[in-house]
């Protein structure tokens, strides 16, 4: 049996209490949301916090408020399964619900939370291994070692951003509200939260608590997310394409595209977004060109499932498919 390392566990009832515990316990402590990412990592000794501050008892961190006109406010402890079913989410941003449904498996969606999904650790098949396995390669840069085995001459870690909701939140322009134990509060754009480094992949201090995710009003935009993985469940994305467009007919008024699973942070493509503005999606060549531009920043490496050059090749295919889907308006009705 893979067992957890020893830890102390708290179950605060309020955000204040949670922050106070965090303040008292210091850097040895970690927040525990659904546990579906942190606990396996702890069993493999990738992370070994001595204290877990469980958030499941804090009612104020759950639930969805708002609508398509005002925008949505998601409590970060809302489970992925709740998000899938939530009528307000399905009405305003169906892609968010649909994406949640693509994450892992049904029981894990009952446990995993949207906040946890947005903050999951980067993944790499040199890193998501047991302690003994990692010892056989003298560990890696991300934990206990010095070398990034994906690119041994590289000064940085290439672990992969593997959340499905992250690229989508970036193209929607979601914002995240973070509270610190010292009482300070800040709100950050989703796209600003993620850094292109497998180790320091979050621009967030460990003691900061994510208390709310805000999705903007819809204002005529459509969004979609396409996921590439081996199997229809369990698997993390090896490529995820999120796109949000404002269309008039088939004419693109504005476009946001972000690609996940092909780098340590979601990759956006200002070139592709600028290219699409003012162009018609009726033209297949426009789609092809935009897909090619959007795929450029993808840097898949040999640390996930599938052949890396094939994943690179698939990026433009999937971007084009996402654009075609938005042109057809499928995403808006996918959950009906």
């Amino acid at each position: 049996m893979m067992r957890l390392p020893p830890f102390r566990h708290y179950r605060p009832r309020t955000v204040e209490e949670a922050l106070a515990i965090m303040d008292g316990e210091g850097p040895e402590a970690a927040f525990l949301a659904g546990g579906t990412d942190l606990l396996p990592n702890m069993k493999r000794r990738q992370q070994t916090p001595r204290v877990l501050v469980g958030l499941s008892g804090i009612a104020e961190l759950r639930g969805v408020r708002g609508d398509s006109r005002t925008g949505l406010r998601l409590g970060p402890m809302t489970t992925l399964a709740e998000l899938v079913r939530d009528p307000a989410v399905r009405a305003a941003w169906p892609a968010v619900a649909r994406t949640a449904e693509l994450i892992s498996t049904p029981p894990l969606r009952n446990m995993g939370t949207i906040g946890g999904n947005l903050l999951i650790d980067t993944r790499c098949n040199y890193y998501n291994q047991s302690y003994e396995w990692r010892r056989a390669i003298d560990f890696c840069m991300k934990k206990d070692g010095r070398v990034c085995w994906v690119a041994p001459s590289s000064p940085r870690c290439w672990a992969v951003q593997s959340s499905d909701e992250v690229p989508l939140m970036c193209v929607l322009g979601a914002t995240l509200r973070l509270l610190s134990p010292d009482g300070s509060e800040r709100t950050v754009e989703a796209a600003e939260l993620y850094a292109d480094d497998g180790i320091a992949h979050l621009r967030k201090r460990p003691e900061e608590l994510l208390v709310e995710i805000a999705l903007p009003p819809v204002e005529g935009r459509r969004a979609t997310y396409l996921k590439l993985r081996r199997r229809g469940s369990f698997d993390f994305p090896v490529l995820g394409v999120a796109a949000a467009l404002q269309l008039e007919g088939e004419l693109v008024m504005s476009a946001r595209i972000a690609i996940g699973g092909v780098g340590s942070a979601p990759r956006s493509s200002p070139e592709a977004e600028a290219f699409l503005r003012g162009r018609s999606l009726a033209d297949e060549e426009t789609i092809a060109r935009a897909a090619e531009l959007a795929a450029r920043p993808a840097r898949p490496l040999d640390n996930t499932d599938f052949h890396m050059s094939w994943r690179k090749k698939m990026t433009s295919v999937f971007v084009a498919r996402a654009l075609r889907e938005l042109r057809a308006g499928v995403a808006a009705t996918a959950l009906v």
Binding site: N125, Y126, Q129, A136, I137, R230, G232, S233, F234, D235
Partner: peptide
């Protein structure tokens, strides 16, 4: 080139078909 370790000794990364496949 990495000590001949098994690339993915896990249920997640050794891919076996699910109910959906």
């Amino acid at each position: 080139h990495r000590r001949l370790v098994h690339k993915m000794p896990s249920m997640l990364e050794y891919k076996s078909p699910t109910a959906l496949e």
